[in-house]
Design a protein around this nucleic acid. Structure first.
Length: 375
DNA sequence: AGTAATATGACCAGAACT
DNA sequence: AGTTCTGGTCATATTACT
């Protein structure tokens, strides 16, 4: 893998954001588009440029890779280099949802004739949760939520806010307003009573992310927040995957890596795309249970659950390829733990303990590719 | 013992200044 | 062109609690 030749490629052109480094190595900062709408989004059609995929990037299989947009420098360049030099598509789901979610996607799907899930999801807090209007103070200007993360504010935090507001004037002085709103932005708090803010409930997070109600029910609350925070935004992913519907009228077979709670599977289901078979790899036991529960309620195809990507040897992959006649889609988002900004401890980059599992995504995809080339 | 709540900055990129 | 300021982030280690 290390021998893969380094290519210098700057997407988006321009010298914006350049920073010369002291050691003489080149700046490799990926340009993030503004607005962050990828190649296109419903209601945000950019002048759609034809994209030419490198020859070796073209399927079968189709593949779809996801990770956080804001990584330490050079990470997306490396990911792109491994994934056949495809330009990442950066999308902030705030353009399709009431909550922000800045993510990069690398895939070899067509980008023409996409269609969104209908009805389009609410794009403001009040459209999503009308009852919060009642206690929303006029000095809180938020109309959308920030990124839904894996943990929520402690009761102490909301209590501090409540006490502070209780002994302030109405409206509170600017310094108090600023403190409260900063905390609300930081923790995604909503107004649920007089002077009272609270984190979103797990079922509200499910709704904002496009999952069916109670999708994650049955595991601990903390666990639900964690699994949901690590998940796809279903409507965004479904928009990208929608082009598969007409291409596979008889359904698809899917290799799903780092499945989590099954955001990709839910997206395909909501698109009306039948899944003949899904081989799912997910390390979390609770997540596997959640996916199995949903599958048994909604699906008729075959689900095979595997715990660890490391256990997928070339032989095993080849046997699945043979058994299911190849995979139509390889989908997954590899761990962001060591890339995400909120990690205070081990933001070690792509070589970090969990995030380096990306290389298994590439490895497995490449094995599937070559096995299918021999079919 | 296992589970849940709580406390805990750093880094990066843009905006808004000088 | 450089500086300061501001906002925002698929989290982890420790402590408290069953």
């Amino acid at each position: 893998m290390e021998e893969r030749k380094k290519k210098r490629k700057r997407y988006g052109g321009g010298s914006h954001g350049n920073r010369s480094s002291l050691d003489g190595s080149d700046d490799e900062q990926m340009h993030l588009p503004n607005p962050m709408v990828g190649f296109n989004l419903p209601g945000y059609r950019r002048p759609s440029v034809m994209r030419m995929l490198p020859q070796q990037a073209i399927g079968p299989p189709f593949f779809y890779y996801e990770n956080v947009a804001r990584t330490p420098r050079g990470v997306w360049e490396t990911i792109s280099r491994f994934l056949y030099d495809i330009e990442p598509e950066f999308v902030d789901s705030m353009h399709l949802s009431a909550a922000a979610r800045k993510r990069g996607y690398i895939h070899n799907l067509p980008i023409e004739n996409r269609s969104p899930l209908l009805p389009l999801p609410p794009k403001t807090i009040f459209e999503a949760f009308p009852h919060y209007k009642k206690w929303w103070p006029s000095w809180d200007p938020r109309r959308q939520l920030n990124c839904l993360q894996t943990t929520v504010a402690s009761a102490k935090t909301t209590e501090r806010i409540q006490c502070l507001l209780a002994r302030s004037s109405n409206p509170p002085p600017p310094s108090v307003q600023k403190y409260v709103i900063d905390e609300c932005r930081k923790w995604n708090l909503v107004w649920v009573g007089k002077n009272k803010v609270a984190p979103l409930e797990p079922n509200e997070v499910e709704y904002l992310l496009g999952f069916p109600r109670d999708h994650t029910r049955g595991v601990g609350k903390t666990e639900r927040y964690k699994s949901l925070g690590n998940s796809f935004h279903v409507d965004t992913v479904a928009y990208h995957l929608s082009v598969l519907r007409d291409m596979f009228p008889n359904g698809v077979s899917v290799l799903s890596l780092f499945t989590g709670i099954g955001g990709g599977e839910v997206a395909l289901h909501r698109l009306g795309i039948h899944m003949r078979a899904v081989v799912s790899v997910e390390i979390g036991e609770a997540n596997r249970r959640i996916l199995r529960g949903w599958w048994d309620q909604t699906q008729t195809g075959t689900l095979i659950e595997v715990a660890d990507v490391k256990s997928l040897t070339p032989d095993i992959i080849a046997s699945y390829v043979g058994r299911f006649g190849g995979f139509d889609l390889v989908i997954g988002g590899s761990p962001c733990n060591n890339l995400a900004g909120s990690n205070r401890h081990h933001r070690d980059g792509l070589e970090g303990e969990q995030s380096s599992l990306f290389y298994h995504y590439f490895r497995i995809l490449d094995v599937v590719k070559s096995a299918m080339a021999r079919m």
